[in-house]
Amino acid sequence: MIRVVPVNSKKELGSFIDFPHDLYDGDPNYVPELFIAQRDLLTKHPFVKHNPIQCFLAYHNNKVVGRIAAILNNHYNEFNNANDGFFGFFDCINNHEAAAALVAEVVKWLQEKKVSKLIGPVNFSTNEPSGLLIEGFDSPPVIQMTYNYSYYASLLEDAGLKKQIDLIAYNFGDDYNDRAFHMLDRLEERLNRGGITIRKLNLKDFKNEVNKLRTVYNSAWDKNSGFVPMTDEEFNYAANDLKLIVDPRFCCVAEHNGKAIGFVLTLPDINQVLINIKRGRLFPTGLMKLLWNKRKINGIRIYALGVLEEFRKRGIEAVLYGNVIKEYKVRGFHKAEASWILENNDMMNKAIIDINGSPYKTYRLYEKAI
């Protein structure tokens, strides 16, 4: 018999964070999240200060067999004039009864808050890791992308969830379209003549850069499915975390007459290191592995790219992508991922394909009327 209980204690929270390590034990593509980072995310992140969240654990014979979190994103509902609830942090053994029990508990919790639709998985919103992997199980996820067993889709679909939208991840290999890059160089020159310039991120002026990018971020994605603007506190929290690993050579800002109108943020794939840190523990040896192997990272993730609406359809997106991939080529890196892109974002998908990006992983958001 499956028993689902709310996570209310420090010990239960530890079990919630650690469950995936046991579930994916022996899976060569599993990347453990750092325990301390997950604990802080669930207890200290600015999001949890103004949005109710309840984590649940599923037990069978007193052994954890699944987990899930119910999330009420008040800011999302206000911004989108919606009445939706979310689920995230879903992991489960291949057992339909357990998965159905977890989803049912989330539905019950959200119904008490008068929510009419369930969407997920998101951890906590689309500003954080989102989507269920449905294609591309043959390689580890890159930084801040999700990973799961292939049977998860069946578990959720049998629990009554249906596809809302797919999210596409693109891979860039070593096959470069030199002609396309020459065209991008000419396009950038034309943009320059129109007062639009592309520059590298300036970490020495970090506070001002964050303020500029926050304005663009919260405006550039305003019509994306499922988007919710980040509060100043949330954006600053994320920025301070990313500052620890960001490489400004891979990050560019587009400006028009000195005003930021777009940017591309690229992160080194720290998952190449985390994959070897057992159970996400930095001590006693994990920290040394992290510091020592960080220099060996040879992959990147194009994490976020956006352009203000009034400056779109001028090729700025393609030029930003092109600048990152050219730097990637110069550095001799072996893997670059652009993720994720909504399947119906034709302009962005075309910009990536035009410089030889290939779709190689697909993630899915599900929904269910409740």
Rank of each mutant, 00 (worst) to 15 (best):
Y147Q: 00
K350C: 04
G357T: 02
F181Y: 06
P121Q: 09
E189G: 06
Y237L: 08
H334Y: 11
D22N: 11
N298D: 11
F311E: 04
A180F: 02
Y59C: 09
M230E: 07
E12L: 11
G286C: 11
D166T: 11
F56E: 02
A260H: 15
K63D: 15
N211Y: 11
P46D: 02
W109Y: 10
E97G: 12
Y217A: 01
R295L: 09
M183I: 10
F283K: 12
K368G: 05
F86K: 08
G315E: 01
F35Y: 15
N192D: 03
G131Q: 04
F124K: 07
A338M: 04
L118M: 13
F235D: 01
S219C: 09
D232Y: 13
S125L: 09
R214V: 01
G299H: 02
M1C: 11
L213E: 00
N29I: 07
R364F: 01
I325A: 01
L72C: 10
I196C: 03
Y24G: 07
Y76H: 15
F19G: 01
E97V: 11
L342Y: 04
V115W: 04
I341N: 00
E327S: 02
P121T: 08
K361Q: 06
E78Q: 14
S125W: 03
N80A: 12
F283S: 14
E309Y: 10
I119V: 14
N218A: 09
A338H: 02
I355C: 00
N80S: 13
I261A: 05
S219W: 05
I119C: 07
Y151W: 08
F137M: 10
E310V: 07
V64S: 06
G332S: 07
R193G: 11
D166F: 01
K11I: 15
R67F: 06
C251F: 04
P28V: 05
I353M: 10
M1S: 15
A153W: 05
K63F: 07
N94Y: 09
E343P: 00
N123Q: 12
E12K: 14
I2F: 05
F181P: 00
L34Q: 03
R279P: 10
D232E: 13
D25P: 02
L118D: 06
I196N: 00
V7Y: 04
G131T: 03
G85N: 11
